[in-house]
Computed example of a mutant assay.
Amino acid sequence: MATDFDATAHHHGLIVSDLDRAIEFYRDVLGLDVLTRFTVGDEAFGTAVGIDGASAEIVHLDAGGARLELATYEPEGEAIDPALNQPGSTHFGLAVDDLDAVAASLPDDVETISGPQTTESGTTIMFLADPEGNLVELLET
């Protein structure tokens, strides 16, 4: 079924409980630039997200050809288990030039699933978790 509009990617969104800690991770550890920070919380927003009285503090970060949106909500909802292979799981992918070098430079407190692994497609990948437990894929093609 064809639509009468074109949709293009705008952002990848992650809900976090500590916005400043998440910003630190994506800015300082992964090198993304903060584009904008704002708060929304009017009646239209609450209606749009289906939570009466909801408000959110939102930050957009520049990830090259993608925009990452980090948001924290009041009131907070329940977190979804971010298991990598479960329906409803999410992750954010970032391409890097030298994954071995990036992996070696990660702070000791960054949780990784494994070190760099080259898949049968020839792509070298690794997954790590941000401070909220959201999965991030780093890949070198």
Rank of each mutant, 00 (worst) to 15 (best):
A22N: 05
F92M: 10
G64H: 01
V40A: 08
F45C: 04
T72D: 03
V102A: 08
P107D: 12
G77P: 08
E120V: 14
G13C: 12
D4N: 10
E69R: 10
V49H: 11
A7T: 15
L99H: 10
D52I: 00
A22V: 01
A95P: 15
A103E: 08
A79H: 01
T119L: 15
A79N: 06
T36G: 13
A66G: 01
I51A: 04
S17T: 11
R67D: 05
L70E: 03
F38A: 14
H12C: 11
G31E: 03
P116H: 14
T112I: 14
V110H: 14
A9I: 14
I58M: 11
I58D: 02
Q117D: 12
P82N: 15
L14K: 07
H60W: 04
R37H: 13
D6F: 12
Y26F: 13
S114M: 01
D97F: 02
T72V: 13
H12L: 14
G115T: 11
D62F: 00
A48H: 12
T123R: 02
G64F: 01
I51H: 01
P87D: 08
A95D: 12
Y26K: 05
T90F: 10
A54R: 06
G88P: 05
I113R: 09
A103M: 08
L35Q: 12
V96K: 02
I15K: 09
A44W: 14
A22F: 09
S105N: 05
N85G: 10
E111K: 13
P82T: 03
I113E: 13
A9G: 13
F45Q: 06
G93E: 06
P82M: 07
